[in-house]
Amino acid sequence: MVETTLHNPDAISTAEEARAIRLTRARRRSRNNIFRHIFLIICSLIMIYPLLWMVSASLKPDNEIFGTLWLWPSEFQWNNYVEGWDALVVSFSRFYMNSIIITVLSVIGNVISCSFAAYAFARLEFNGRNIWFSLMMMTLMLPYHIVLIPQYLLFLQLGWIDTYLPLVVPKFLATDAFFIFLMVQFFRQLPRELDEAAMMDGCSPFKIYWAIIMPLSIPAMATAAIFSFIWTWQDFLGPLIYLNDVKDYTVPLALRMFLSQDSVSLYGEMFAMSVLSIVPIFLFFVIFQRLIVQGIAMSGLK
């Protein structure tokens, strides 16, 4: 029996055919792979070029910045960083301080208030829950520019113009529907039996949130924190409208001041400061995205 199958000429030719097909497939696959990689590398170069350009511009002598597309500076102007820091009427130390205060408060406010609201929508029973939820979701569709003027008038009435209050207080009032939605979705996939077990263990709704839901939602919280950080840190319009005193300016507003000055010679310094302004975002992202991964591993939820 074995003999016949082994020496069956048909069997051999089928085996060879199969190997030939496998080989052509493998060849085609590796060729495809090469093309795919080349394509992706080109795409990512295109994506990253502006960033590289900015970094290189921050190191170039002023006359080279717009003159050439070539990225490598003829001469490294590290001085741009030193001079840029104090080039404006107020030092960048101050601008960073302002930005950090606003951003940190906003992140804390957003994470706390939005997770409260999300917990209510995901777990508590109250009248008109679905209606409130859809109303909240509708605010996602409203462009910021539409609410800008009414909001400005409101804060004017409150006498909050020229303070950080309009930039920070709303963050503590769960105004960002996107984060609430993100967290509601996350909370909903936590098993309800956990809440019930906690309830039997004598937890109040707040304690359930605090001791069970929140520790298990670190990935969602970290995601919200990252987005909240990025959006607040790079927010230009908000500070532009509500802040008038240069001493209160945030980093993006300060960068803009380089342009409003008459002298053209500060481009290098401006790009140097622009590069520095990305560093906090980068650091924050690196730290918090690790929390996302850790959180998912820790919860061990299937």
Binding site: P191, E193, L194, E196, A197, M200, P215, M298, S299, G300
Partner: peptide, 12 residues
């Protein structure tokens, strides 16, 4: 005390 079908142990 109640024992749940899914155990409902606190994962963290």
């Amino acid at each position: 005390s109640m024992v749940f079908q899914s155990y409902a142990l606190y994962p963290h």
